[in-house]
Design a protein around this nucleic acid. Structure first.
Lengths: 151, 151
DNA sequence: AGCATGTATCTCGCTCAGCGAGAGAATACG
DNA sequence: CGTATTCTCTCGCTGAGCGAGATACATGCT
């Protein structure tokens, strides 16, 4: 395993980056009275809102790996914090739509906005061709992990 | 924020990769009766063991953001699973050294080994110059996140 | 229509990870 | 020495998340 140094270095870099991002998220969450799960839920909901997708408690729980009881608790928590709102689906009244409040968007922007700006600024020192390589590399690595996850 | 497409694409790729790696870790943990925290602790301990560093409960807790009570519980848990062993430091008898058992190394290798091999294999399609760019890119991004974390 | 089956969410009771506070044991320092 | 500091652990508690099951709506079958 030692002869090929560069690949292993890259594996460790990937892991190190993941650790840093996780820690950043955890600290942001703690600072706002949220739990890591709440933050992951919020990211999922904001992504869906931007994409115009309807999210129900069922879908959210599935995305986060929670069962229905845990999901209800999570949604209660986010609703109590005024970050989301429940609304019965008029088409299928068994369903509940989760709507993000303005406050959640501000919260997300307010904290991740700074990090994103820093990341984008740091990308400025790379040329277009280099960024293209980085994009291709990250895409490939993500696909490998996703494939490994699906066994 | 919309004019510069490539940087934002890359930010989303970074986040997506983090999500995938987290989910992979969480599934591996659940499959082995571990909690996400246990897995993070194990990774930290294995890294330290490879580097020849001594890890104490205090250092471990600090690295994971746990207080002393939570750390004791974590160490108890890992010890009960036969993954680590406590040993009083002969030099400073207030300290406890955490030693990883063979079983922990096998566990780590057994599961992450497969993923690492897949990642390294996928890197094969990139040239040395491209891998160097990827390494530089990841290093830069990690530094930015670490800097943002330190306020 | 009527009834079974399936789907979406919620309630209840429980387990256990992690916290705050502080105790106990060893070391460092005046 | 004694006092402060460091490292780990104990105790009691809160609350996230689980399993089981209740409830309500929807849909398919005959």
């Amino acid at each position: 395993m030692e002869p090929e140094r560069t690949p292993m270095q890259l594996v460790h870099l990937l892991r190190g980056l993941t650790v840093e991002l996780d820690l950043f998220g955890a600290e942001f969450a703690a600072r706002n009275g949220l739990h890591p799960t709440d933050l992951r839920a919020l990211i999922h909901l904001l992504d869906a809102a931007r994409a115009g997708t309807v999210v129900t408690p069922g879908r959210l729980g599935e995305a986060l790996g929670l069962n229905s009881a845990g999901t209800t608790g999570l949604v209660d928590r986010l609703e109590r914090l005024g970050l989301i709102r429940r609304e019965r689906d008029p088409g299928d009244r068994r369903k509940v739509r989760l709507l993000v409040e303005e406050r959640a968007i501000e919260l997300g922007q307010g904290f991740f906005g700074g990090l994103i700006a820093d990341l984008v600024a740091a990308m400025g020192v790379f040329g277009d061709a280099e960024l293209a390589v980085a994009r291709r590399f990250l895409t490939t690595m993500t696909e490998v992990v996703a494939a490994a996850r699906a066994e």
